[in-house]
Design a binder for these strands. Structure first.
Lengths: 111, 111
DNA sequence: CATATGATTTCAATTTTTGTTAAATATTGT
DNA sequence: ACAATATTTAACAAAAATTGAAATCATATG
């Protein structure tokens, strides 16, 4: 089963929705099945399922069947896409700091 | 001039668009005026203006008039919202790691 | 087998987003 | 005053995302 390349675009769009971000917040303390998620987040099962599909699509969560009941689907958080987003953020912050530093130097020279 | 509370929602939605993220990437190496941004990103001035309005709205960029020509508007990156996003990310990654650790411990105990 | 359960899919209606063209605003140079 | 420049706003159409309700799937259980 091939996993789609987690594009920043898709990841950010996924996280931009409060319900979906709530799902991530729940999942970060441990895996949960779809029903629990729908109850915890306060969405109808169909609505939750669609959000989960989206989250799965961008690689933020993965799905598994538990051995004792193959009807339920257990969702877990996948750290990779969050790592990529964090990397982008850190690059941005670093470059911004560099820019500030050279501007400061520029001021000092021109004094 | 009051600044709207930079909600994660708005910030993430803003960054989810490739054009807007490109703007941020350009601005992280230094301020630019609207015209340059529109050229660099490859959007018509009206389109760029609307993206800039959105970025301003969620606090990701700030606007200023240069003294020598009050027609142009110079945009700069504001680090605060990115910082908040990074904080959320770090919390998420930390909790996820904690969860993993306690699961590992659980396995060891049950062996 | 019949029925109940956990979850997903489909579909149509609605809303949101995005780009374009045309017009407006503000400012500068002649 | 007039024309040119930098940018924004408004109005509109096209494209994309979201949502609730009903239908469907797959698995479990009596």
């Amino acid at each position: 089963m091939k996993r789609k390349a987690a594009s920043l675009d898709a990841v950010l769009a996924a996280l931009a929705d409060p319900h979906r971000r709530r799902v991530v917040e729940v999942l970060r303390s441990g895996p949960q099945n779809a029903g629990e998620l729908s109850a915890l987040v306060g969405l109808s099962p169909p609505a939750m399922s669609r959000h989960l599909r989206l989250l799965r699509g961008c690689g933020l969560v993965s799905e598994a069947h538990p051995e004792f009941d193959a009807r339920v689907r257990v969702y877990s958080l996948r750290p990779q896409p969050l790592g990529e987003l964090k990397a982008w953020l850190e690059t941005t912050e670093r470059l911004w700091a560099d820019q500030l530093a050279s501007f400061k130097k520029h001021l000092e020279r021109g004094r």
